[in-house]
Design a protein around this nucleic acid. Structure first.
Lengths: 231, 231
DNA sequence: TAGTGGTCTAGACCACGGT
DNA sequence: CCGTGGTCTAGACCACTAA
């Protein structure tokens, strides 16, 4: 019997668990490799190569590739296989434009369902964010930021739209991991979130739309900036 | 029953190379069955049942289910399998709201890349649409409508956004197959397309935004109306 | 014509959910 | 504890692409 060597499970003898199946590990490894430039733009990802490199069979490789295609990191052309897509400025702008459309829409829709209890929860998360920011604990910042928006978006009662956002999250997150945040981004985020919260409290739709839109535009600006600096 | 024209490739523009693979046939059959009410809302779709019903193994069934989940027709919960989702008013509104956001955005963005040659082509398609409408050839209407928007959206240079639209197209199309169009919808579409074309010619962004938005809103209104009548 | 991709079968194993 | 879902392997076949 051939033992699994290239990609290891948590411990010897433990089969792939639901939490961490093989295709998931392959996907994460591939995402990282693509974003950090191990594969050059346009490079073909051959199944045979990947199976031997990772020591797994076709299926998990295919699954991982499909998912990465869904994120937009690679393209799969029929009968030609997978190609690494260049994660360039234009591509990132495209993604973030879509995010902005949907995030503004969801934020506006959330107003109808917002309650005092939810507002209190949001302010509490905001507080945690600010604390984490002060301690330069950026991992927590990312977590609280996600929670903040997740709560709002779930109130908007459009699961389909929310799924699209979620879908792009991993990708943007992956890019962030490579390029980081701008120095003053966290303090900007704090201000922007506060502005959104105040508009939510007042149920001022015009202000809320502008606040949410600006929040996305600033995020886009920062990420694009980090990418050009990082190069 | 179902005409050959409705069976199309997943990739717009390229002909299906393989004679419909198994997962594709299963997917189409399932989509039709769900939309026409063979399965009741919330019903579990068990793999074992489906494999014996269609006489194929697990893989193509899984593939089909995954794709239908992507369209939103079913939900897949971890360790609980697939459930039929109710294609109700709320769900359809959610989808069409997203479409509207993206379609308006793409239409506005296309302005920068529009040329006299493209405009001529669009007017030509519009002419074909009107002719097909006069002859009550609705299959052609659907085709020309799709071409009309496809040309505009491709000019907008945001493949990611376009993919989202394409993704929902099959679903909306499937719903249309079951409920049809409102009696006067085609003549409304003609007027709406003409308005969009005129705004494109004038490069009047404000008018264009309104025209595109209204076009989507009217389409949504019509579909929702057909669904409530059809019930 | 060889290489590669796309799909499918058959069988195996583990993990989770409800009886 | 059994049914079911989720995943993986191994091997096979055919279609398409490119040399």
């Amino acid at each position: 019997m051939v033992s699994e060597t290239m990609i290891e499970s948590s411990y010897p003898g433990s089969a792939p668990t639901l939490a961490d199946p093989t295709y998931s590990r392959v996907r994460e490894k591939l995402r990282q490799d693509i974003l950090s430039g191990v594969y050059v733009q346009g490079q073909r990802l051959k199944i045979a190569d990947l199976t031997s490199r990772y020591g797994v069979s076709q299926m998990p490789i295919r699954e991982a590739l499909q998912q990465l295609q869904g994120e937009g990191l690679i393209t799969i052309e029929p009968n030609k296989g997978a190609q690494v897509r260049s994660v360039d400025r234009h591509f990132v702008e495209n993604i973030l434009d879509i995010r902005r459309l949907i995030e503004v829409y969801l934020t506006l829709r959330s107003v109808a369902a917002i309650s005092g209890r939810v507002l209190k929860e949001l302010w509490h998360i905001q507080e945690s964010y600010e604390k984490a920011a002060a301690e330069e604990d950026y991992a927590s910042c990312v977590k609280f930021n996600r929670q903040f928006h997740a709560i709002i978006y779930e109130l908007a009662d459009n699961q389909e739209a929310y799924k699209i956002i979620e879908h792009h999250w991993q990708l943007v997150n992956g890019i962030r991991l490579n390029y980081g945040f701008g120095r003053e981004r966290t303090s900007q985020v704090i201000e922007e979130h506060r502005r959104i919260l105040r508009a939510l409290e007042e149920k001022d739709l015009r202000e809320l739309e502008d606040a949410a839109s600006m929040h996305c535009l600033k995020a886009k600006e920062d990420l694009i900036n980090q990418m050009t600096v990082g190069k």
